[in-house]
Amino acid sequence: MTTTTTKREARPGLLGALVHALRPRRRETLSAAVTINRPRPEVFLALQHLDQLSSFMGGAVIVRSSGPRRLTWTLELPTSAQAEWELELVEERPSEKLAWRATERSALPIDVHVALVQAPGRDATELHARLVLGRARLLPTGAAKLFEKDKLKDDLRRLKQILETGEVLHSDASIHRGRHPAMPPGEVHHGALR
């Protein structure tokens, strides 16, 4: 789901401008998969505690527990507005499957399904994620990007990184979009070549 709230300091007009009428109009499914070089029970356990792995969302989204089996996802938007949605864990089959559904407070119904399959012949885990986005009302612009396949894949890659290596790897350029510290400070940045 998506409820959109504004922080106190944000001017009311700003949010109006920000909220574009947005997809999805119809139900839409996004799916992506990743192979994680850890045994299934370990991956399963990690997924049960996603609030402890927020960094897999790449920084912009904070995941915290908001009650038993409930997770609240908060997206900080550049305009100091926020988008928030809450998911409830509705299905859990040890080492095999997890499913979350947006709670009744949600403006955007999202179902999240995760299936875990053992990789062929070894103790690694294939994680198949599917996001089903229901009929939406309004979604702030910044939030729309969260529901794109590329973003989902990046999130899964980061989840894999955390489970395999302990944390999300950065380069100066991956933390700072555009100009980054690993270049001469006075230089005018001309953007990517080609």
């Binding site: 350029a173 690993a182 270049m183 230089e187 940045h189 001309h190 990517a192 070549l193 080609r194």
Partner: peptide, 9 residues
């Protein structure tokens, strides 16, 4: 090689 940026070390 694509994606070089001016100033990259």
């Amino acid at each position: 090689v694509p994606t070089m940026q001016r100033g990259d070390i």
